[in-house]
Computed example of a mutant assay.
Amino acid sequence: MAGERDLKALLRDMKPEMQEGVFVFCTIAPGQEIPAAINPLLMFREQEGTTLVMRREQAERAGLSSQFASRLITLTIHSSLNAVGFLAAITARLAEAGISVNAVSAFYHDHLFVPDQRATEALRILNSMSAPEPRTSAR
C-alpha cells in the first residue's frame, strides 16, 4: 500500500496522537557500543557520535546525559516518503507559535518530538490544522 502524497489529504487526515512518556536525546562517542540494557526508539549515526532517542527514565537508569525533554506526536496518516510539503507546512505552523520540533519520517508515519512543556499546545495546533474548514451557507 502506497502512502498518501496529496498535501491537502495529508493535512486533513493526519490525526496526530501524543504517545506516552517523555523522550530525550542522548549521544555516545563514535565506535562506542550501545549499552545492552538500552532499547532506543531511534538511533542515528553521525560522524561526531551516535544519537539515541529514548524514554527519559531509560537514559537516567543507564547514566546517560540527555537533552531536549520532549513528547512524541505521531501523525497517524500513512504518508508517502515522496510527499512534498507536509512536514514543511507543519513545522512552519509550529514555528509561528515558537514551538521547536524535531521531525522523523519513518516508513509509514511522520513523528514529531516537541518540547515537553509545549506538547499540549503543539497537539492543539496540529488538530486545528486538520480540522475541516467551516462551511458557509448560501443565503
Rank of each mutant, 00 (worst) to 15 (best):
F23N: 13
L52Y: 06
V84H: 08
N102W: 03
Y108I: 02
I34H: 09
M54N: 08
F23V: 12
S130N: 11
R45T: 13
R45W: 02
A106D: 11
A97W: 00
I99M: 03
Q47F: 07
N82M: 08
S66R: 09
R45C: 08
E46N: 08
L42D: 00
D6L: 14
R135T: 10
E46T: 10
E20K: 15
A138Y: 12
Q47W: 13
A89N: 14
T76N: 12
V22D: 14
R118Y: 05
F23I: 13
M43L: 15
F107E: 01
L41Q: 14
E48K: 02
E4M: 03
L87F: 00
S80N: 10
I34Q: 11
V101A: 06
M14C: 05
G31Y: 08
E4A: 04
R61Q: 14
A119K: 07
G21C: 07
T27E: 14
A36E: 15
L72Q: 08
Y108D: 13
T76W: 07
K8Y: 04
A88H: 10
S100Y: 05
Q19L: 14
F107A: 05
T136H: 13
S137I: 11
I38P: 04
A92C: 05
S137V: 05
Q117C: 06
S66Y: 14
S100I: 06
A69R: 12
M129S: 00
I73E: 10
S128T: 09
T136S: 10
A89Q: 14
A69P: 13
